[in-house]
Design a protein around this nucleic acid. Structure first.
Lengths: 182, 182, 182, 182
DNA sequence: TATGAATGAGTCTTCATTCAT
DNA sequence: AATGAATGAAGACTCATTCAT
């Protein structure tokens, strides 16, 4: 069944996010199977990482589908995106780390799709006059990734309360740190 | 002289920032020496990484000293900090990755010092009424790290113009993405 | 089963006795396994040598148990000890070499136990009036080790007939080289 | 001058006797020179060991010349040999260890000369009726080496008083451990 | 001549992967 | 299908040796 494989990917994602250099042995132990079995499920480390990427990207895609960034007020859409992807921060961190750790040239196609959807959201906000235009949409997209990931890490390190992570991320991204002039 | 060691650390930092999983062989080649010589300078990979941490932290410290975050208008101070640490984004990325890699308990003391200085800056801004208080200083500190690093990566990937990285980072952190209501 | 590990230790003992400086590669080849497998059984060279020490000491202990040096006429007891430990001369040589190699402080406890039993035998012989008292028991113990080892080496080098090694060792230790005055 | 080289060989002999696997670095440090200088004196480790062998053998030769094993009562001759070679026990141990440690086939010619002189002494003693004939001369020679070396080690380990080493060695070799029947 | 620095060669150890059960 | 055992390949580390000063 696919369930076993998904569970395995899940524990692997959690582990690799914390320890990007984890060995197959550690991955297998975290999944509760033997190394040989791990190799039966996924032929080699690369295949496993590739599959994990697929899973993470598809989860992100699904999450985006659910919050419909293409619709409604851009500001609200950004909030929905942050709230919707926040549970996937682990996967996101994994994707970023993995992409950063190894040759930066190799960009997974699925990643570009997500990139595009978010970038489009920010562009839409700029065109509708809601968002500043001196911050490029591409930059805002990268910032979104970075802030979601950083928030998740901060929560994990006990530096930020779990409940505040999402709202603070949204507030910072949208409104910045400065107190609004009334 | 100490110059040799510093040059070695420099090239290593550059390499490890791009390829955190680089082998000793790659590090040695990047430094233009043999593996054996590399081992002469730093006994083992751990010692090398440790030394690199020291260097990165000391550079950050020096950079902070230069921009004096403790003085003047908090908003300007944040801009100075971003401008001052932006050239060290590579080191910062290295430190973050490295800190993420190891168990969260093992936190280098020097890191905490930098953390504290930045956190104090945001706290000062909040107390002076310049910064919002619904975003905790700790969160803003983490966000600062994340944005500087993300901006540097985005520049490296060609997604953001090198010249815009610093101002956009500062603008986002301070003012957010929303267009100011006049 | 434990048999595999014992067989491995056996071949290792034989090799290390002949070539104390043998590399892990040679040890693995002598055991008929790959280096990696050797490392699976014993983590590192130290662990292997340590285990070999254990084995050698336990074999010696067993051999001593079998010949009961504490019982009967001391002279006969010495003969039994020599006859009983002669097949373990290789192990004995290994132990001596190994003990000589390391700093004298680090003395394995098991070794002291064997030392004590033999020393006690000589002391008993002196107290019963059978052995000379101008040769200390400690010296006789060391001499026993040295002679057994030397005899084994001499046999290996073809200088002494295998059958004569044990009796000659016993005769020399007990009676010396001088012809008895009648 | 030759003095420097001899002093170097002396400290090397002492070290190698205790630590047959000592590195060139240790040897150099023990001699108080740099590794490079050590290499200037002796081209390579082999050359050094070879030279050490030469020195040890020549010292042994000289010592034997001085005590004239070919002359006088064989029993007295053996005592003189033991007394005369006892200061060279370190060298002797080095020679034995070295010969044992590496391929046993390669027997230095000078060693055979010494072997022959000692073997001849025991043979002479047997022919003159002083020594037992059931202990072969070759065996007695090996036993002599072993006992001298063991005695030196025992002294070094504090198990035997330095003053007793020589007489006990001689007594055991000649008279054995048994109390003489009157 | 003496030495700090550099290195090629070799050993130890680990890892991802395969095999036999 | 699952796994303990085995291993080839690769990385880390050390050592004897050479080089430049």
């Amino acid at each position: 069944m696919t369930t076993d494989r998904e569970a395995l990917l899940g524990s692997t994602a959690e582990l690799l996010t914390r320890r990007p250099a984890a060995s197959m042995d550690e991955i297998a132990k975290a999944a509760g199977v033997s190394r040989a079995t791990l190799h039966r499920y996924y032929a080699g480390r690369d295949a496993l990482v590739r599959a994990l990427e697929e899973l993470a990207l598809s989860r992100l895609d699904t999450a985006l589908d659910a919050v419909r960034p293409e619709e409604g007020d851009p500001q609200d859409a950004v909030r929905r995106v942050i709230a919707g992807t926040e549970p996937l921060a682990g996967f996101l961190a994994f994707l970023i780390t993995e992409n950063q750790l190894f040759e930066p040239g190799r960009q997974h196609e699925g990643w570009r799709r997500i990139d595009d959807r978010l970038c489009a959201l920010f562009t839409r906000g700029q065109e509708s006059g809601h968002f500043r235009v001196d911050l490029t949409a591409a930059f805002l997209t990268e910032a979104l990734y970075a802030l979601i990931t950083a928030a998740a890490w901060a929560v994990q390190d006990g530096k930020v309360a779990a409940r505040s992570a999402t709202p603070m991320t949204a507030e910072l991204l949208l409104g910045g740190a400065l107190r609004r002039a009334r």
